[in-house]
Design a protein around this nucleic acid. Structure first.
Length: 292
DNA sequence: CACTTGACCTGTCCGC
DNA sequence: TGCGGACAGGTCAAGT
């Protein structure tokens, strides 16, 4: 489930490997996953150079020399994997995954003029890639609505407090999953941050103190920064631009740990359903009767 | 208007 | 063993 740390890890990998390369061809076999007409692709993608990468929330952009950009959303099972023969030939530690590409999950293949390749794989076909003028990115509806980037300076105590208080009668988890509150949080990091802040996912925001909101804000920053350092979380499908898995899941406190002991108090982690998502909590550390 | 639920998909896992 | 069904979750559209 690519969330902020995973998408940012992919972006950094792409920035390192594909900026400066020139696109030779783009082929796709999943029309819904790439809604633009082939003619536009031909005009603005073929022979274009990749001039930069950008991330906003969970969305990724590859900026092209034609003043167009490819906007990519990995949704749950998307992967962007770069294969350059000079780097990932026989003997590379991730050779096993790389050598399987293209796979039956491959939706888009971008070949560069130097014979290296970028694969967009997506098992569940929820992800997509769109071509648009770079200048129109900010007008894409869900980009325009995005809240602050949690690892940037803009994510202040006051900004977070105001956004959360606007949703005072909602539960904490529903609010954290709302991309207009904080950009880039998904199911994994919502659970992890709420555990760290000792807040129950169904607790109403209106009943929480300002101090509790600030504790949560710091927890969000700490968790996301730690996960980024670990290369993100590989629960099932996620890999970075070099095909490598992330290791945050080994450090997870509650996510996918139902039935196991809480690392903090020893109680048994439980899994419930909150805001339509599988939700992991420690019933003692996040006791709904004793909320901060 | 604020919030919740269902649709989009496929692979995996569970129980019978 | 085979098979049906539940489940996984990011975002938008539709429903309450």
């Amino acid at each position: 489930m690519p969330e902020l740390p995973e998408v940012e890890t992919v972006r950094r990998g792409l920035d390192k490997h594909i900026v400066g390369r020139q696109i030779e061809s783009l082929d796709f076999d999943w029309p819904k996953g790439f809604p633009n007409a082939p003619a536009e692709v031909k005009s603005f993608v073929i022979k274009a150079k990749i001039i930069g990468t950008e991330r906003r929330g969970k969305a990724l952009f590859l900026h092209l020399s034609t003043k167009y950009s490819l906007m990519i959303h990995l949704k749950m099972t998307g992967q962007l994997v770069y294969v350059g023969e000079e780097r990932f030939g026989a003997g590379h530690p991730d050779d096993s995954l790389i050598s399987t590409l293209p796979s039956k999950s491959t939706r888009v293949i971008i070949k560069f003029t130097d014979k290296t390749t970028l694969y967009f794989n997506d098992q569940r076909k929820f992800g997509w890639m769109k071509l648009m003028p770079t200048s129109e990115i900010e007008q894409v509806p869900f980009i325009a609505k995005l809240g602050p980037e949690p690892l940037e300076r803009e994510f202040t105590k006051n900004v977070f407090n105001v956004l959360m208080r606007k949703r005072n009668n909602r539960g904490f988890k529903a609010a954290l999953l709302d991309q207009s509150v904080v950009a880039g949080i998904g199911n994994i990091y919502a659970d992890e941050a709420l555990f760290m802040a000792k807040i129950h996912p169904t607790a109403k925001i209106i009943e929480a103190s300002d101090e509790a909101l600030e504790t949560l804000r710091k927890a969000i920053v700490d968790i996301l920064a730690l996960s980024l350092e670990k290369g993100g979380s590989t629960d099932r499908n996620y890999v970075d631009a070099e095909g490598k898995k992330g290791s945050y899941i080994e450090f997870a406190q509650v996510f996918r740990r139902e039935g196991k002991e809480c690392r903090r108090c020893g109680a048994t982690i439980v899994k419930t359903r909150v805001a339509g998502r599988g939700t992991h909590t420690c019933p003692v550390c996040q006791n709904p009767e004793e909320q901060p």
